[in-house]
Design a protein around this nucleic acid. Structure first.
Ligand SMILES: NC(=O)c1ccc[n+]([C@@H]2O[C@H](COP(=O)([O-])OP(=O)(O)OC[C@H]3O[C@@H](n4cnc5c(N)ncnc54)[C@H](O)[C@@H]3O)[C@@H](O)[C@H]2O)c1
Ligand SMILES: NC(=O)c1ccc[n+]([C@@H]2O[C@H](COP(=O)([O-])OP(=O)(O)OC[C@H]3O[C@@H](n4cnc5c(N)ncnc54)[C@H](O)[C@@H]3O)[C@@H](O)[C@H]2O)c1
Lengths: 213, 213
DNA sequence: CTTTTATCGAGAAGATTATATCGATACTTT
DNA sequence: AAAGTATCGATATAATCTTCTCGATAAAAG
């Protein structure tokens, strides 16, 4: 779509398919499979083989005619491309149901994400330790972001609180926001916003079920 | 993309933008705003006005030149279109961190989703009550689905457990699956699969941060 | 009452994304 | 060794999605 600055123009669609391939490839790697063709991968997901090849092209891994791609090579290349071989620190704001689920998710480290601190404005939550991380008062958020130079902000507050918290984050220098609240956010160009809105996902299900009858 | 059976009248992109409009429109409605133009809506999201009009067209609501669309009308039409004015019952399997967050989410009823029961294979979790719902043993899942004719299955088990649980659901007659596990699932045509994969969403963030430097 | 302006809906044009085609290549089979 | 075949990468074509253009229309301004 938009949002990429220079030449490495990779579509958001491709970007979202890469983790799908990766998960499968890691399973194949664990099974000891050495090579896999675009045809095989495509069959797993009901994609088109050409599309798979185009997607994998962005990682730089080249395949061999009649053989396919090296599984181990693809795994490394995709992880590198996605930035999952390095660590991206993040702060989380809103230690409610969703916030706690994210804080408790061990596998984020596999995806290069490291939640270093959590914040809440509810004094009853502050001070408690949630999954080994202390919950800090919201007031300390700006200073913390500036001091630790953390780039990612995870937003798990109620919708009406989302924009004010985002403004705090932006003022403190956050570069990317992962938003779970069903609220339209205003952010300046240059900052990446990714909405993990479950309601959007749900819309696909409920509308299909509705129009099927 | 693919996976819609007959005439895929509405694109998935449009489908995912409708909830965005809806959330904003509901806020406007609460403020007493009566009409809104595609231009105004577009500005809020940095979309193109024509795109907004095309999206809204699918709901059947017609606008008035020089005035725009009735906010109240759009809210009803979008909710109807998405199936959010009726109730879709669902079962949830895997009462871990994510499963509990979903069980505790009060607003799902606004989105037409009603989680009627939760299942887990861990005997320590079974019997406990999580957010007013008893956790049932996995063994009871098939009978429960058949008896209650529930259509939606929510999958919050570890990735390696995903396919076996899906197979159970399918055999019992589930029509739509909302999957949170990072695993490629095999499902027959006619069943709707929607992946709420946070790792796909995360890929957008981490890859951008990586390639910016 | 006429002109101006903002917006609509329909259709055309443009951009992006997905798929098909094809020569080259590397492995298998005969 | 030669023939056959699956797959690659490159390029062309097709499909889809987005944006532009324009005549019609409804409200506001003159
Ligand atoms: N729980 C889910 O399954 C789910 C599903 C879809 C969307 N969401 C969205 O995710 C967000 C969080 O949902 P939840 O279920 O965790 O809600 P929740 O009410 O359980 O938690 C919200 C937390 O944010 C804190 N908070 C409120 N305002 C704050 C502020 N200004 N600064 C810092 N902290 C603040 C609250 O104290 C609370 O701890 C909501 O926007 C919700 O709509 C949640
Ligand atoms: N927690 C998160 O923030 C998060 C983020 C992204 C993805 N996910 C994915 O969501 C899924 C659940 O994550 P989680 O953090 O809740 O994990 P979790 O380990 O906390 O919970 C998993 C639950 O599933 C149950 N379970 C395991 N096998 C089962 C089976 N065959 N049948 C029924 N129940 C079974 C376990 O007993 C446990 O209660 C995982 O696939 C995870 O990768 C979670």
């Amino acid at each position: 779509m938009l949002f990429v600055s220079k030449d490495p123009v990779v579509s958001r669609s491709t970007l979202k398919r890469l983790p799908l391939y990766l998960h499968l490839l890691e399973a194949l790697l664990a099974q000891g499979v050495e090579c896999v063709s675009s045809t095989q991968l495509a069959r797993e997901f009901n994609f088109n083989p050409t599309q798979v090849r185009k997607d994998l092209e962005v990682t730089g891994e080249v395949g061999k005619a009649r053989v396919g791609f090296r599984v181990a090579g693809l795994v490394v290349r995709i992880r590198d491309f996605l930035g999952w071989n390095s660590t991206h620190d993040a702060v989380l704001v809103g230690v409610g149901n969703m916030g706690k689920a994210l804080l408790g998710y061990k596998d984020f480290e596999k995806y290069g994400l490291n939640i270093v601190a959590a914040f809440d404005k509810d004094v009853r939550k502050v001070g408690a330790t949630t999954f080994d991380r202390e919950v800090l008062p919201l007031a300390q958020l700006p200073k913390f972001i500036k001091r630790t130079k953390v780039h990612i902000g995870i937003l798990t507050v109620p919708a009406r609180e989302a924009q004010p918290v985002v403004d705090l984050m932006l003022a403190a220098g956050i570069k990317a926001i992962w938003n779970f609240a069903p609220a339209p956010l205003r952010i300046p160009a240059g900052v990446i916003l990714e909405n993990a809105r479950l309601t959007q996902s749900l819309a696909v299900l409920t509308s299909h079920l509705t129009h099927q009858n």
